Amino acid sequence: MKILQQLLAPYPIEQFLAEYWTQKAIHISAGDARKFHALFSWSDLNYLLNYHKLAEPDLRFSMEGKSLPQTRDPQDWSDRLRQGATLIINGLHQRVLTVAELAANLRHDIGYRTHVNLYCSPAQQRGFDCHYDTHDVLILQIDGEKKWFVYRETVLYPTPDMPSSKQHQLEEPPYLECVLKAGDLLYIPRGHWHYAVACDRLSLHLTVGIDCQTGLDWLNWLSHELKDSSNWRQSLPVVVDGNTNALEQQLTALRQHLIETLHQPDILHKYMDAVTYRHQPPLPVTLPAQMGTDIFPDLFMTRFAWSPLHRIRVKQLGEEHYQVRVGSKQVDLKGVPEIFVENLFKQDEFSLLDIADWVPNLDLEGDIAPLITRLVTEGILQIRER
């Protein structure tokens, strides 16, 4: 959990998971105002606003809990900020590479889908009424300061169809009241009511949403698996004059089939694999190399790197036969020695000369170059620019 550990530092990750994760909010002060500056900055925000065609629902404004009418005029955006509205940009992880890497690596750390939104709030302003989210959140304060109030939950582990707008908050004081300064982190579990007010200057923060899986998600996955069986797609018997005998008989048969399905030895691993590999970001497009052009611009000194948004999973299927999975892409490698595979997938970056050192018996042009070409054109491997 390297990325999560970096975000929580200096707080121990083991203590966070044992005492706070899904249980209660915590404010962690790193004492380093520039801790998150490498992720995002005012310059990044200005670039998005000036050179991207942003519109609702990706860009919107909220003031005192109410969404403002849509506008695409950048001059209106500045005016709204001056009037006290909070600027929100959704899906920041789909627009900025550093944020995309954060979301992808955090997803690999904890095993669940993540997304990142941006919030820019004028001084002394509150963009939202007190509410709770139906996902866990990590709030990363980039610049400015914001005062947060967190209250205990009224619904345990709410799902997306149980929004706070349909619930009533308890009339009691917050159990956590804190001021986030630049470099600070705030964790709020789903279901815990909260709101925030910017302090004496413009505030900029990122909110990382974490969509944890639940038992209901497993049941939903299981229902999709059962669609392959015609027995489950078959219409249930009609109830004639209140006679439910036929209906009971068919439901009993379906119950038995469900029990047999749940007792399949690989059913849990199938679901765990589905959780591991779904919701992965797409492999990056790398032109012109992905079309087979200029794959070795510096000849043997050409350097290659793996996608920064994905983790590599290698499974040995037989002697010199390996299955490589990166995101949604799966590639079989045959006739490659074990020492080559061990070195290749442990390196963040390498060149053809590095490979020659690992496996001096392999021919660079006849064996290695075609393999590297295949990995590049498949979109798994990228050419590192000088």
Rank of each mutant, 00 (worst) to 15 (best):
I13Y: 02
A85H: 06
D32R: 08
H131R: 05
R60K: 10
G111V: 10
K35V: 03
I142H: 02
I13T: 14
L45C: 07
L17S: 05
L59G: 02
A33P: 03
N105L: 10
L118P: 04
P69L: 08
E64Y: 08
L118H: 09
N46R: 07
T71M: 01
L45Y: 13
L54Y: 10
D143G: 03
L97H: 14
L97E: 15
R82V: 14
D58F: 06
G127K: 05
L17D: 14
T22F: 05
V155F: 09
K24Y: 00
E64R: 09
Q124K: 05
R95M: 13
V137Y: 07
G91C: 02
D32F: 06
Q70R: 08
S43W: 11
H27W: 03
L97Y: 11
Y119K: 04
Y132C: 01
E14C: 03
R80C: 00
D58L: 08
G31R: 03
Y112I: 14
I26S: 02
A103G: 02
P12T: 11
P69Y: 14
S67R: 09
E145D: 12
E101M: 14
L92G: 02
R82Q: 15
L81G: 04
R107Q: 11
L106M: 09
L97V: 14
V99F: 01
Y112P: 00
K24P: 00
R60P: 00
V155N: 08
L59E: 12
C120Q: 12
D44F: 05
D133K: 01
Y112K: 04
R113C: 06
